[in-house]
Simulated scan of single mutants.
Amino acid sequence: MPENDTPAAQSAPEPLSDPAESGKPFRREWLLILGLFTLITLGLMFLIEEYGRQSLAAVPTRTFMPPAELREVRLEQFKLSLRVPSNWSAPIVRDAHSFVISSDGSADTRTTAAPFMYIVVDALPVFSRQLNFRTDLREPTAQLDALVEALNRNGPRFNRAAIFSGSPYPAAIVRGFERGNALTIILMRLPDERWLYIGAQAEAQFFRAYESSVFLPVVNSIRLLQP
């Protein structure tokens, strides 16, 4: 018999692999991936929790600060006088046409600001430099509606302009809500034909208290200085 035909000379069949042994590397890789995913998830949860804790700590806790009695302030550059709470800052002039009255003495008018009033003198020419709206409407409600629409504050969270009867001069008012704040916009026509824009803002939960004790009394106290 030829040598290469002997059973010993024929190649022996490879032994079958144990399924349990062949699956071990795959299971080890899968467990490693699962462990890494768990560590990453826990790390992200920790970072999110820490960021939320720091964010909450950075937001000031506000409460209603009762204003003191009103005192008269004369603003010669704007030809106006008005009364402001004596424990609030004096009006802060922002530019040649506007000033801010605030509870914390800042000129901040963002949604995160402390309660404030933002007043723009000769408002229609000022706003019409950047906005397109009619400025020839003498009736305050019609003129305020036109301005509010140009300011994009005529959505469902803002009502239509109504006559404001507390002012010494013809005026209209709009009320609304925005990002947790309540606000009013009043447009007043002065005897010298200038229009006065008055925006007031405070957190919604405190707004009525500030409106009755500060915002409306200040508006009602506005007078045109006589030459």
Rank of each mutant, 00 (worst) to 15 (best):
R110Y: 14
D192G: 10
A58V: 05
S212T: 01
S167I: 09
L31Q: 14
R129D: 07
A182G: 11
R62A: 05
V218D: 04
E211M: 00
A96I: 03
M117F: 01
P227Y: 11
L151C: 01
R71E: 10
T184H: 11
P66C: 03
P170V: 01
K24W: 03
L190G: 12
R189Q: 13
V219C: 06
Q54W: 14
L196Q: 08
I119Y: 08
R94P: 07
F215T: 04
Q130A: 13
N159Y: 04
F206P: 00
L224R: 14
E49I: 15
F207N: 10
R71S: 08
A68Y: 07
T6G: 06
F158G: 08
K24H: 01
W88M: 09
S213D: 02
R110L: 10
W88V: 14
L32W: 15
A58N: 07
A9D: 02
R138V: 10
P7R: 00
S103T: 12
G176P: 02
S103R: 11
I198S: 02
K79M: 10
V121W: 04
T111D: 12
F127W: 03
N181A: 05
A96D: 11
L34V: 15
E193G: 09
P140D: 09
L56P: 06
I222A: 04
A161C: 05
L75T: 09
E193R: 04
L36Q: 11
F99E: 08
Q226I: 13
L56W: 15
M45G: 15
P13E: 00
R27W: 14
G166I: 07
S213K: 02
D104W: 01
L80T: 07
F78D: 07
P115M: 02
V126H: 13
Y210W: 02
V174T: 04
A146L: 01
I119W: 10
R62I: 05
T112D: 11
G35A: 14
F37S: 15
V126N: 09
G155I: 00
A58P: 06
G166L: 07
L47P: 08
V121C: 06
H97F: 10
P125S: 00
S86P: 09
Q205W: 07
S103W: 10
A171Q: 04
A202P: 09
S212A: 03
R94W: 09
I33C: 14
E3C: 00
L70D: 02
I163W: 02
F99I: 10
P191V: 10
S106I: 10
F158M: 02
M1N: 01
F177H: 11
L151A: 05
G105S: 05
R110P: 08
N220L: 06
E3F: 03
N181R: 07
I33G: 14
F206Y: 08
Q130N: 13
I163A: 10
P25T: 00
P227W: 08
R223L: 11
G52D: 15
L137I: 03
L187C: 09
P217I: 02
A90W: 13
L147M: 03
I163N: 10
N154T: 07
A172R: 06
V73P: 14
T109V: 03
L190Q: 12
S81C: 04
D104M: 06
H97C: 00
Q130Y: 12
A57Y: 15
L47E: 15
L131R: 12
P140H: 12
F116Y: 09
L44N: 15
T184P: 07
P66F: 03
